[in-house]
Design a protein around this nucleic acid. Structure first.
Length: 542
DNA sequence: GTGCGAGTAC
């Protein structure tokens, strides 16, 4: 260009356009700015040229220069689909999702029809905001103008529906696709994981392999998340194997998801090995190894990692502190807990809801219920987890009156109790020996439409058994199974202990003693059957 | 132009 200028050759708008296009391609901000300067030097002729002006908007938008892109865009005389697309995409990348969606509406109001390049960005914004209603509007537009055959659009629809929690719709779009690429498959897998359907995600991953679609880092990352959530050792190991065999780059995200998987299944040495092999580690990677140690009771290693992390000049964030607070809570290490609390205050991390709940939990676990309560009272926006943390703290102490009072208070403040809230109220009554109230709460819970989970049943079975109501404990053990819940080790243990109590209490016949003797040598899987068998005889007891 | 990783409550 400089040479052309020296030789006094005419540089037309097309040449500037091409040059800017090249800068977009290379994300060459500085060069593009220089070209912009030359354009301005030529005066109004070029800078008022619609073609060049649009190219400039696209250029600044792609380089994420918000101010320049916006001001040039507003000065455009003719806003075409390219400039709108650039601005919508920029807003989307900057996290201004509402702006992106408004752009989609405005461009249509101005008579410009969104193309299939704009639609994915708008759908992304809908997904991020959870605006399912608007997402459906965009889907309607897609069908109307016939973009549904575009893989980019369809993949974005899958992602949007998944993020909005409407997995059925995501699946419908996926099933309706004629040609699916890896992104479509990955969006579907991710949708399952994000909606807690981890088995479904693993299923999609396997289908993907069967169909011969090339697996990407993202496919493996999603599989590893699902496996971690399910404690699915084999599946997760296969995911790691796929990553190694396919020679996938062990980047921050893939590496972190492998560490997360090994951490969840308790394979600490494997997590450490992956950590040590990662070239680049970010805050998430470090936090994962720290939480791995905390989760597995290795507090000293966790704290040591914290020190190493600081020597790498990384600053602790909310997640780091949540892990440290959990470590302090688990070990009732009040000194560490207070230090962590102070760190949160100094670094403004205590306003994070998760950190705040962790602080509460830490004080409660360290037997400082008054400190926990003071902090709880000082928090203006309390979420369900925070309420449940304080409920659990009082319930654990057997202060059923205060637990119940807070339980009503949370509802007055517009938070509906979930199964965990109810479980704490039940536990509070049981710890206080108020067995009838505990049972009554179960009835109330069910009539309020909240279904008891395995913890509810185990709490009741254990509590009743400990308070000497062995027959009732066994009754609830039976009810749990009638409700379709498979007993776990804690409920089986409590039911067994209820049986032994009944035997000794009633100085009963050999049936129980023999049964318990047998139970002692039985595989855990068959225990529920044995206990159920015992129930028949329990009914015969006086 | 579309897809990915971490922390809290029973």
């Amino acid at each position: 260009m400089t040479k052309m200028e020296h030789e006094n050759l005419q540089i037309g708008p097309e040449i500037y356009g091409e040059l800017l296009q090249g800068c977009v391609y290379e994300r060459a901000l500085y060069t593009g700015q220089q070209i912009h300067a030359r354009i301005l030097k030529h005066g109004d002729f070029f800078s008022r040229n619609d073609y060049i002006a649009t190219k400039l908007v696209v250029f600044y938008a792609k380089c994420d220069v918000l101010d320049a892109a916006n001001s040039l865009f507003f000065r455009l005389r003719v806003k075409n689909v390219f400039s709108w697309a650039a601005i919508i995409g920029l807003n989307c990348r900057m996290g201004s999702c509402e702006e992106a969606i408004m752009g989609f509406v405005e461009m249509q109001e101005n008579g410009v029809s969104p193309d299939n390049f704009v639609v994915p960005n708008v759908l992304k914004a809908c997904g991020a905001l959870g605006w399912i209603g608007f997402g459906r509007v965009v889907h309607g537009y897609v069908m109307k103008v016939g973009f549904d055959g575009c893989v980019f659009v369809a993949s974005s629809l899958i992602d949007m529906y998944g993020k909005c929690g409407v997995l059925d719709e995501a699946r419908k779009v996926f099933d309706g696709m004629i040609v699916r690429n890896a992104v479509a498959w990955n969006s579907m897998t991710v949708g399952y994981v994000q909606n807690g359907l981890n088995e479904g995600a693993i299923g999609v991953f396997y289908d993907m392999r069967v169909e011969g679609v090339e697996l990407t880092r993202i496919s493996v990352t999603s599989l590893l998340s699902a496996s971690a959530n399910l404690d699915a050792l084999e599946e997760g190991k296969q995911g790691h194997a796929v990553a190694v065999i396919s020679g996938m780059e062990l980047d921050n995200v893939l590496g972190s998801s492998i560490i997360n998987f090994y951490s969840k299944v308790g394979l600490i040495a494997e997590a450490e090995l992956v950590f040590s092999r990662m070239i680049e580690k970010d805050i998430v990677t470090w936090n994962l190894l720290i939480s791995c140690y905390v989760r597995n009771g290795q507090i000293h290693k966790a704290l040591n990692m914290c020190h190493l992390m600081r020597s790498e000049l990384l600053k602790f964030d909310c997640v780091t502190l949540a892990s440290i607070l959990a470590a302090a809570a688990d070990t009732r290490y009040i000194k560490l807990g207070k230090e962590a609390h102070c760190y949160c205050i100094r670094n403004n991390l205590d306003c994070d809801v998760v950190v705040a709940s962790s602080i509460l939990d830490m004080y409660a676990n360290c037997r400082r219920i008054d400190d926990a309560r003071r902090i709880f009272n000082s928090i203006s926006h309390k979420d369900i987890v925070m309420w449940n943390t304080i409920l659990a703290a009082y319930a654990d102490l057997g202060l059923s009156g205060e637990t119940l009072r807070l339980f009503y208070q949370m509802q007055l403040e517009g938070i509906s109790p979930n199964v965990i809230s109810w479980n704490s109220v039940i536990l509070g009554f049981l710890r206080n020996g108020r067995v009838n109230e505990a049972k009554d709460m179960l009835t109330q819970m069910q009539s309020s439409g909240v279904q008891p989970n395995i913890v509810t049943w185990t709490t009741l079975i254990t509590g009743l058994s400990q308070k000497g109501y062995g027959d009732e404990a066994i009754l609830f053990f039976q009810k749990m199974q009638e409700a379709g819940i498979k007993p776990g080790a804690p409920s089986i243990t409590s039911a067994l202990s209820a049986c032994t109590d009944l035997v000794s209490k009633h100085h009963q016949n050999f049936i129980y003693e023999n049964a318990i003797y047998e139970i002692a040598f039985t595989e855990p899987e068959s225990l529920p059957g044995i206990i159920n068998h015992l129930l028949k005889d329990v009914d015969l007891l006086p």
